[in-house]
């Protein structure tokens, strides 16, 4: 296991550098001088030159990248033009809300999708299966921002059951109430995918010999489903759920924008509209790092469940 972990860590190094290179290269897409664009048309020439120097833009490109990498590793993603604060500080301030929203969304998605997927697999080719398959396809095809707007329209504006925007008065219960609609709309992003993976991995397990044996032994159906099938079908479900968390963090840009939540997504949205490029760049790198970390943890979990993977890293002698 230890060898495997070390191998995976080493594998991550080039990916991390390339990810940083992509984030760095994004700034090169800006037409014209980024400093001039950021400061706006009324900026004075000396201010532009000062920002150019601060961003290291007066250096050759290769040097610029090295400076960027060095700074990023020490948590220096530059300074926000709007807020005048370090980007990293801003991201850390806003991240907890986005993380909470994403975890809530993932929980909702799993609670709905996993049982649906199991049901669809057990009743393969029945009407229920067909219905669940169509629903998960509709889920994948729905733009989550529109779904959010529709939820807001029905539950806040017409039925007045749940609040539409903002964070409320700050008590735990009220915050939770304000996060219900955003997390449901965000959950839709992953629901279809998780349901489909659950269905197909359950179908896979269904055909295995040990399940047939369990049926032949006369075990109760419930015992077979929970103790034998689900336990083995869980690995792909965990994998896909873990990876979905990264997408949910990204989807938060949309839900936080619609529901007026002051999270990381909203921070990035404001930054996009006000051409605060360093916040956009820092935000996307931050999410990518989290995604890589999630991917790594999912792989380790996968390896822990599946001895085949780690066995190839054990010495021949033992």
């Amino acid at each position: 296991m230890r060898k495997y972990i070390i191998h995976r860590l080493l594998q991550m190094i080039p990916t991390i550098f390339l990810v940083m290179f992509i984030a760095f290269a994004l700034m090169k897409l800006i037409p014209g001088d980024p400093a001039a664009v950021m400061l706006g048309p009324q900026a004075r020439a000396q201010d532009i030159m000062k920002l150019d120097k601060e961003l290291g833009l007066d250096q050759p490109v290769m040097m610029q990248f090295l400076i960027y990498v060095k700074r990023a590793f020490s948590g220096d993603f530059g300074r926000s033009i709007i807020y005048g604060e370090p980007v990293f500080t801003l991201l850390l301030q806003r991240f907890p809300l986005t993380a909470l929203l994403s975890v809530m969304a993932l929980s909702i998605a799993i609670i709905v999708a996993v049982p649906s997927g199991i049901l669809a697999a057990l009743k393969q080719n029945s009407f229920v299966d067909y219905l669940i398959t169509v629903f998960s396809l509709v889920g994948v095809s729905t733009p989550i921002f529109w779904f959010g707007l529709m939820l807001m329209m029905v539950f806040s504006l017409y039925l007045h059951i749940l609040p539409s925007v903002g964070m409320g008065n700050g008590t735990l219960l009220d915050t939770f109430r304000h996060l219900i609609l955003p997390s449901i709309s965000l959950a839709l992003l992953s629901m279809g995918t998780i349901a489909r993976v659950t269905r197909s991995s359950m179908l896979e397990v269904l055909r295995q010999d040990y399940v047939k044996t369990a049926y032949a032994k006369g075990l109760k159906k419930k015992t077979i489903i929970y103790r034998h099938m689900l336990k083995n079908a869980m690995v792909p479900i965990i994998t896909v759920s873990g990876l979905q968390l990264g997408n949910l963090l990204a989807g938060a840009v949309l839900t936080e924008t619609i529901f007026g939540l002051p999270g990381m997504g909203r921070l990035m949205y404001d930054a996009i509209l006000r051409r605060d490029f360093l916040v956009v760049q820092g935000g996307i790198l931050f999410v990518a790092f989290i995604y890589i970390a999630l991917n790594f943890s999912v792989d380790l979990l996968y390896a822990a469940f599946n001895p085949h993977i780690t066995s190839s890293y054990k010495g021949v002698a033992k």
Binding site: T15, V19, L29, N247, I284, V287
Partner: peptide, 24 residues
């Protein structure tokens, strides 16, 4: 494949959003 892996480390829609933010 390393480049592909790196690009896939960014959530799909976020990378598109960031590119548009820069490109205009």
């Amino acid at each position: 494949m390393r480049v592909v892996d790196a690009m896939l480390s960014f959530p799909y829609i976020l990378l598109a959003i960031a590119m548009m933010a820069m490109l205009g």
